[in-house]
Amino acid sequence: MTIIPSEQEARTMVSTGTHSDGVPVVAYRIARASGEVLAARQDDLDFYAASTVKLAVLVAAARGLDAGTVRLADTCVATRTFTSQVPGAGEYTIEPDDVDTGLPPDGTPMPFGDVVERMVVVSSNEATNMVAERVGLPAVNQALADAGATRSVFGRKYSDLAAERAGASHRTTAADLCLLMSALVTGRLASPERTAWMCELLGRQTDRQLTAAVPGGVPFGSKSGWVDGIRHDVAFVGEPGPDALVVAVCTRGYDEPAAEETLKSLGALAVALS
């Protein structure tokens, strides 16, 4: 089973981008949700987080539901246009390559619960921005802090290029992603009802990388993320709780096929050895 391409193979698979210098890197942490680390490689290495930090937006939404500050039935209005957090930068739209074509036309009313579902299940950037606006970026970063993911940040809404140029970013490490997912599945971040709701949504994410080899009937959930030269995933396998297996893998510099082979192979090996 190929897990990490050789140096010679890697030279033919490199991918550069805004967040990748083309130098192939793989980092991972495999642990029990209770905190026992089973294996790790460069798990404190900093990466652009891509969509993996949507996991923290999900937690912030769950906490809002617990507190009663939002409800699943609350009305949101579908939109692809947002206001930059940089004063004077004005409005922007989601970048063309990232548009969620399954979102209803702009101006269409949507229940908050449906917006959260699109954020998780198909990783919609528009939906994420709508949720982040409703719960607030401080609540998202508080979720990261409470999970112990102290090197991670949700710095801006997606496609806010003015904020990105000003230094606002999404950052994470494999260790932090593992800590965040572990805190979620053990119920340390939200009520039992909302923890079950989050796990159910994560179990329906359509982009299965680390969980591709999970046997039928075994509970799992995941949240992946990708941009050019970046491909990550974080997953839990097994009944949510302290004994669940949690796997986080971050890659930079690989083209998409090589990165996905690495993620799926590491996921399969972790599940087989757990």
Rank of each mutant, 00 (worst) to 15 (best):
L202H: 02
K157A: 08
D106T: 08
D114K: 06
A175W: 08
G155D: 07
T195S: 05
L144M: 09
W197C: 02
A162D: 13
L189R: 00
S159Q: 09
A174W: 04
P105E: 01
L179I: 05
M198F: 02
M198K: 00
L210N: 03
P105M: 01
A168M: 13
Y158W: 14
Q205S: 11
G90M: 11
S84W: 06
A89D: 10
E193H: 06
E164P: 03
Y158A: 08
E117W: 04
L179R: 13
A132F: 04
V121A: 07
A143D: 00
G203Y: 12
D74W: 06
L103W: 03
V140H: 03
L201M: 04
E117A: 14
D74E: 13
N129Q: 13
A175F: 08
T79R: 07
A78E: 06
S169E: 14
H170Y: 09
A162G: 09
Q209V: 04
V185I: 15
T173S: 10
S191N: 10
G148T: 11
P111D: 10
Q205A: 12
F112C: 00
P104C: 08
T93I: 13
S169R: 06
E200A: 14
A183R: 04
A168P: 06
V116P: 06
G167L: 09
R208F: 00
A147Q: 10
S152R: 08
R204M: 12
